[in-house]
Design a protein around this nucleic acid. Structure first.
Lengths: 120, 120
DNA sequence: TAGCCATATGAACAAATGCTCATATGAAAG
DNA sequence: CTTTCATATGAGCATTTGTTCATATGGCTA
């Protein structure tokens, strides 16, 4: 048996150490990658995508969105909270009504890139 | 009491019917939105994001990735399957080894947009 | 202040998801 | 053909997540 100091998974005999160490250097820190996954997680739900798409056209209040998507006011409100925490939408209060709109153009960009990918 | 024909959520007295019907017209079909959410769902996991980032630099075999991310070969293999199904990575077999790489540049684009958003 | 209305929120439950473990496949070497 | 090694995969389990239901908050208006 050969001595294999780092043999947790396979025996790693074939590993390209140069590439592995180069990649290891260029990887963003774990926190960034975690935040990134968290961001995409927000896009990864049909309800939230539909909400974002609804807001492509104009700002809208919670009740409007609920009606458009045929969903509960509560469900929409919960999801809007998630979207707001990720800075994908922002809120503006007008009396009793709260109007939501897209926070910036990153949202459009990201969604459009996604569309490109699935329709290619 | 007034007659309110479409009062499932709130009473919708305030709904801007013009905007609502305009948005309703411009919405992509449900299937597209479903596929879109499914795509982003794939990006929405730390392990998969890390795998994709690893592949930014060069193609790599399953075992290399497992070592780099300090994870099980099985876990990586399961996730690579997901990534392949979404056409985010592609595989090339060389003997016993399978090398994975990014499928196209949409992946980079989408991830870079995400990075922009979280680091603004 | 009281009542109403739009929105927000907490708890609970069902469904989806990621990892582990054991095992199967498939290719190369003996 | 048998063994070995890299990868793939199915079942099971624990965690996460989205919705519902009931209720709370906060701003108008009478």
């Amino acid at each position: 048996m050969l001595d294999k100091p780092d043999a947790e998974c396979c025996d790693y005999m074939h590993v390209h150490d140069d590439i592995v160490s180069k990649v290891r250097c260029e990887m963003p820190c774990d926190e960034t990658l975690y935040d990134l996954a968290d961001l995409f997680k927000v896009f990864g739900d049909t309800t939230r995508i539909r909400i974002l798409y609804v807001l492509f056209e104009s700002e809208m209040c919670v009740c409007d969105i609920a009606q458009l998507l045929s969903m509960t006011q509560s469900a929409i409100s919960h999801q809007l909270k998630t979207l707001k925490q990720s800075k994908l939408v922002k809120a503006r209060r007008d009396g009793k009504t709260v109007f939501y709109s897209l926070d910036d153009d990153h949202v459009r960009d990201i969604i459009n890139r996604g569309i490109e990918h699935i329709t290619e």
